[in-house]
Computed example of a mutant assay.
Amino acid sequence: MSPDEVRWRDYQAVLFDLDGVITPTAIVHMRAWAEMFADFLGAHAPQAAPYTDADYYAHVDGKPRYDGVRDFLASRGITLPEGSPADPPEAETVCGLGNRKNDAFNAVLARDGVSAYPGSVLLLDHLATLGLPLAVVSSSVNAPAVLDSAGLLDRFGCVVSGAVAAEQHLPGKPAPDTFEYAARQLGAVPATSVVLEDATSGVRAGAAGDFALVVGVDRGVGRDALADAGADVVVDDLAELAPTAPATPVGGAA
């Protein structure tokens, strides 16, 4: 399917990933992960292969924070105690490392703020004219703070963050459960809902949930990787999915 074949009126809900889809916070996450893992490996496993951006896409991108820690460490043959989410950032546990990364992310967000991709705002504006209910489904516990910083929090009827997933005991991406939960919160079902994702784990979640349409947004993963993961259409920017002319609101003249 090509971007110009997407007909938004055919759907009842639109579910967005956040980082890399609406806001360019992925680069902030990447830097925070890189700093945390570089420090950890340097102190505890200097013989291991260094962390690279390729590791972010292979082991971390789109996953719940502790899953990303666990998966990366496994790729280096390192096992740590699981710990608990209450672990302090200095704890040498899976949760401690995840919390250490989260502190670094929050420091950058508070200092620099974040702005949405212009093309993503263009699509949000178009969907607002159609009256489609929208949700954000993000593995990050910081999703509400990021949306608030970008001035977009009030655009979404539902925000399923990593914290909500934990409260509801929902497995993270690539399982489809968080997207399915968001669709239900909006009064829709997967068969009538659209998923927009930039991570292969998120695209796989959409495909596993049999959503009506899964859009891959290529912010660096690669078009082929997104298509192979199950994306029905791949774009470089969400502006490709917004018409050039204003849409007629639902209930208006055809």
Rank of each mutant, 00 (worst) to 15 (best):
H59A: 05
A231W: 02
P249Q: 06
V195F: 00
F72E: 11
A116L: 12
G131D: 13
G216D: 11
Y117C: 08
H59F: 15
T52L: 08
T79L: 10
A208R: 04
L238H: 01
D125W: 06
T244H: 09
S75R: 05
V233A: 03
A13F: 02
F156K: 03
L73V: 11
V221P: 02
D198V: 06
G157E: 09
P85K: 08
N99C: 08
Q47E: 15
A191Q: 13
Y56K: 06
V60S: 11
A207M: 00
S139F: 05
L213T: 01
D39S: 12
A34F: 10
A48M: 07
D61K: 04
A91T: 05
H59L: 06
A166L: 14
E240T: 05
L97V: 12
E167D: 14
A163H: 11
D232N: 13
D236I: 03
V250T: 14
D67Y: 04
K173W: 04
L152Y: 09
G119L: 13
S149R: 15
T248Q: 09
P133H: 05
A143F: 12
A49K: 13
L73R: 10
S193C: 01
D53W: 07
S161W: 02
R204H: 04
G252R: 08
T200P: 06
A45M: 09
